[in-house]
Amino acid sequence: MTKTIPKVHIFGIPFSKMDMKDTVQYLTDRINAGQQTHVITANPIMVMSALESPSYKEMMLKSDIIVPDGAGIVWAAAKGGDPVAERVTGIELLHELFKVGEAHHWKVFLLGTTQEIIDAAAESLQMQYPQVRIVGSRNGYFNASQDDEVVAQIAELEPHLLFVARGADTQEPWIVKHRAALKAPLIMGVGGSFDVISGKLKRAPQWIQRVRMEWLFRLLQEPKRLPRMMVLPRFMLKVMRNKDNVTKHIDNS
């Protein structure tokens, strides 16, 4: 039986307080025990979406673990007086799981983005982690009428790990809807991680990550993200105005 996750609630969204090492161990134990786990790597934009959409919040709460991917979440938890251990980014968690997967010869399926990018990401990961078996990859450009076909394809290959990159608005609801049929022990949305792994985009240098400006580095590479990024100042303002209540757990269900 896996341990209980220590959590802090950011405006009602329960974030894991575990560091990367403990998160990886927790997930490894569940995979080895055959317990299916849906991991959400969440940022302030997703928290704001949950506040504005009850259905989106309900979807997030159906996941098994929500990790603090965004630097803004780490900052908000500290402001609320109930800090997390550290930031647990989706791309780093993916790599840590691949490292563990080498020892266990886990099978992996990659889903999302364009076929060119997903194929390049699969090739890069397979070279880095030759003992992991990447059993399939498919682009994320399919509609609801093709869902059953895609789900059946993945389930037939029986991957231990399924990573999905279709954008937070699409990937998480899709995972929640189809997780039972997908059967994979671990399913995780990874957003733009495949763009970085494939080499299409560069990840911000460590010093930029340390000063919590990774969002700006990414925005300079993808100016089309500006409307989405405008949510960040709103989140920061909400935290500053409500810092006494940021981490209070109020069950509105």
Rank of each mutant, 00 (worst) to 15 (best):
L111I: 04
H95G: 07
L162G: 13
Q25A: 14
G136H: 13
P6R: 00
T247H: 03
V24H: 09
W207K: 10
H95M: 09
H160Q: 14
E172Y: 13
G81K: 02
M18K: 01
I31W: 00
G191K: 05
P44G: 13
P159C: 11
F11E: 00
N139G: 12
S253E: 11
E222N: 11
S193Q: 12
T23Y: 02
P83M: 10
L94K: 01
D22M: 13
L232V: 07
S198H: 07
K107F: 00
S49P: 11
Q221G: 04
I154H: 03
R234V: 11
E172H: 15
L216Y: 12
D147Y: 06
Q171R: 01
Q25D: 10
R225T: 11
W75H: 00
R179H: 14
G136K: 12
F142D: 09
D148V: 14
G112L: 09
G140Q: 02
K79L: 08
A120F: 00
E222S: 13
S253W: 01
S193A: 14
H178S: 04
T247K: 07
A120T: 07
T23M: 03
T114E: 05
M60W: 01
E222M: 11
K99M: 12
Q146L: 13
G199N: 06
S49D: 15
D69W: 02
I134W: 05
P233E: 07
A50H: 07
L182N: 08
A180M: 10
Y141L: 14
I117N: 11
V88R: 02
I154D: 00
D19P: 06
V100I: 09
